[in-house]
Design a protein around this nucleic acid. Structure first.
Lengths: 145, 145
DNA sequence: TGCGAATCGTTGAATATTCAATATTTTCCA
DNA sequence: TGGAAAATATTGAATATTCAACGATTCGCA
């Protein structure tokens, strides 16, 4: 008696997500190569671009990084003068992160690279499909939490 | 003159994909914890479950891992007697990977954990939305290549 | 046929990430 | 009020990944 064939991996949602994520990230990274910045740093800079001061915990959550990983990445960004730390005077356990002027300038250049990628995708993939995909992803994320 | 506010990161396709992927993977990893196996090893085992030898190059592509990373992960799996290497006699540069009996047994247990996750998602998220999301992801991946 | 280029997999060093433990500050409540 | 517990961020050690270089084999073609 033969074992019933299991669903191929390419039909699993987890796999499709990993594959799509990998590919889109790869493309974005390629565009960011001119600035020598990994995608995660763009996320950090983007979150900080509201000028408001975000704690490390908030940031870690927002940019999808573990705390220690974020700490070390921020160390590098501080060395590169892209961001800086300020102790939160209301709660001195916290550190508030801010983007420097240099960081803000870089953010704008990265934003435009990212937008150009988005429009490239929308072009070859279709505006409608893109919007629908985003909608479904948002809803999946919401349900998953 | 104020700088025009840029699109929030949560509206970028790249970010939504990263977020969804992270969350789904986290959940899957939690289920696999009982077997102490990372998601990548499940992918490898699954690809090998057709019983036909696969080269390292093929495998790396299929399981979304870089070559050196795969080599080292396979080393571990060989130590655990889950898979084994056979030199390809047709092309002696290649190595063909096979799943052991132990590996096959584990694959089945992992498959059932993965299926249970899929049905859990489909349940809370809806069969239709899930199917549609998969369809859109497949099509995005296709376009991106 | 022979030899330069390409392919395949692995290795070692450099880099990055993760896990567990720590230091500091705040919160809670007995 | 005092002190245990929780929250926040960082550190160091262990682990994993990546990059560049290598060795072996095959391919292309002059």
């Amino acid at each position: 008696m033969a074992r019933s064939p299991s669903k191929p991996i390419t039909e699993h949602l987890a796999y499709l997500l990993a594959q799509a994520n990998r590919e889109i990230n790869r493309q974005l990274d390629a565009r960011f190569r001119t600035e020598g910045v990994p995608v995660e740093q763009w996320r950090i800079l983007k979150v900080l671009s509201d000028g408001k001061g975000h704690s490390m915990g908030e940031l870690a959550e927002a940019v999808l990084l573990n705390h220690p990983t974020l700490t070390k990445m921020v160390d590098r960004m501080v060395s590169d003068s892209l961001v800086y730390r300020v102790q939160d005077s209301d709660d001195r356990r916290k550190v508030l992160m801010f983007s420097s002027e240099r960081g803000k300038a870089l953010t704008q250049r990265l934003n435009s690279l990212a937008l150009s990628q988005e429009s490239h995708i929308a072009e070859s993939y279709g505006n409608k499909a893109t919007a629908e995909l985003k909608r479904l992803l948002e809803s999946l994320i919401e349900k998953a939490n």
